[in-house]
Design a protein around this nucleic acid. Sequence first.
DNA 1: CATAAACATTGACAAACGTCGATGTATTAA
DNA 2: TTAATACATCGACGTTTGTCAATGTTTATG
Lengths: 116, 116
Amino acid sequence: MSLMELLPVRDVTACCSPLTREAIGEDNASNLASSLRALADPARLRIISMVAAHEDAEACVCDLTEPLGLGQSTVSHHLRILVEAGYLTRSKRGTWAYYKLVPGALDGVARLLVTV
Amino acid sequence: MSLMELLPVRDVTACCSPLTREAIGEDNASNLASSLRALADPARLRIISMVAAHEDAEACVCDLTEPLGLGQSTVSHHLRILVEAGYLTRSKRGTWAYYKLVPGALDGVARLLVTV
DNA sequence: CATAAACATTGACAAACGTCGATGTATTAA
DNA sequence: TTAATACATCGACGTTTGTCAATGTTTATG
């Protein structure tokens, strides 16, 4: 178990000014890189997109496994990364775990990339 | 030498609609993931930021090596990834290689992440 | 031509990553 | 209580990644 797993979920929006506005510091660069690395995977991008497109804008693991063409444990793994990075929330109801987008999380990282 | 190196530099802006607007396809997810993976490294984020902050908004390898605290070959490696991903251009003058931001490249990927 | 400078490329290595199958853990249903 | 379902976690694996030292390449200079 790494240290990262014990820390609270990352708040992507609480950071620095846009990347090209002023020279980014070492720590902010590492944080932003972590946020981007969580997004930089085809399966995880599709998960985010599928969650957003799903009714009530939430989805359980079972909704994602088959369309992704990945094993259940792999999907759980990706969801975990997205939750820890602050892009998704998890709420358990019965035996199901429902995942939702965190409002503003994607916009927060997008804001840091924009140059205009 | 991989196939990727022979292809023209990726155009990040020529892609799909925002990630959360409609379900992203498999190919678009892979392409966007590649674009994000190129950004998802602290050294490369700092390179982009330093190039933007440098005078005339361009910098050579020698400008970057020391502040990054990385070897010259490592910096060249990162620059290569950023050029191939379409974020930087390279122009050689004399023995120097000058790197500049590709206008709109960062905004293109930011646009795909934004939800509003 | 010979040397030096700036950069690219190669090869090697350890660390991180994506995937899977197997197992563990709640929760519901019979 | 037993069985089944939905999901998380673990262990193992092949692949990719970031880094460096060494070498190759190009351009300017003596």
